[in-house]
């Protein structure tokens, strides 16, 4: 039950893009086409889940025992950068077809704030999820990270679909490009506000 609440909360209610503004750069940058949006979402899903797992273990089994929590930001970002590199290399060897689909997005992901953001959130923020406020445990963290990245994918794919439609219309000159995309995002965010208070 609690996991269900975590998943619904992370995908719809506190959508990582439309409510928390994490990962806005790819959201606005690579959402022109549906196919790229799908590729980007897949890569983000993969990296967020994996990096959260690693940084969670790093936080509680290395940083906290050594009392060097202040190195959190620097170690997390290094781990994420290394992880992205590794995923790229492994993917290239094991599954060239998957690498073809996701490969070009991987280098962009290191500086996607959603990845570092989720990694930091799970070790710093107290969550409630229908019970007492508590820090997340390993399983909850990974589920939360995965659900958040699904939320990223959902928003991203919806948004890319909308933008493909808008591209066919005549838009006033100053609105072309990013401004009309932002107006669309605003309406999409408003739609997602309908979920607020659900869990």
């Amino acid at each position: 039950m609690e996991y269900l609440i975590i998943i619904i909360s992370a995908i719809f209610v506190n959508n990582i893009l439309l409510a928390q503004f994490l990962g806005c750069c790819p959201f606005l940058g690579v959402s022109n086409k549906l196919s790229t949006a799908v590729g980007m979402s897949g890569a983000v899903c993969f990296v967020i889940t994996l990096s959260t797992l690693v940084t969670y273990l790093l936080q509680y089994y290395v940083l906290v025992p050594l009392h060097i929590e202040f190195m959190q930001t620097i170690t997390f970002i290094l781990v994420i950068a290394a992880l992205v590199q590794m995923v790229e290399i492994i993917l290239k060897k094991i599954s060239p077809s998957l690498y073809q689909a996701l490969g070009i997005f991987l280098p962009l992901i290191t500086t996607n704030c959603a990845v570092l953001g989720i990694a930091l959130i799970v070790v710093t923020k107290e969550f409630t999820f229908g019970g007492e406020p508590h820090m997340l445990n390993l399983a909850e963290s990974v589920v939360y990270a995965f659900a958040s990245s699904l939320g990223f994918g959902l928003a991203m794919i919806l948004f890319a679909g909308l933008r493909e439609q808008i591209a066919l219309n005549k838009v006033p000159k100053p609105f072309r490009g990013i401004p009309i995309a932002l107006v669309t995002a605003s309406i999409l965010a408003m739609a997602f506000m309908g979920f607020s208070g659900m869990v």
Binding site: P174, I178, P179, L182, V183, S186, A189, M190
Partner: peptide, 22 residues
């Protein structure tokens, strides 16, 4: 209140960019 929340952020930025461009 919507302007303090997420939708307002996107909308306000969109119009500011348009005004800036103009």
């Amino acid at each position: 209140i919507a302007f303090v929340l997420a939708p307002g952020a996107f909308l306000a930025l969109a119009y500011l960019i348009v005004i800036f461009r103009k």
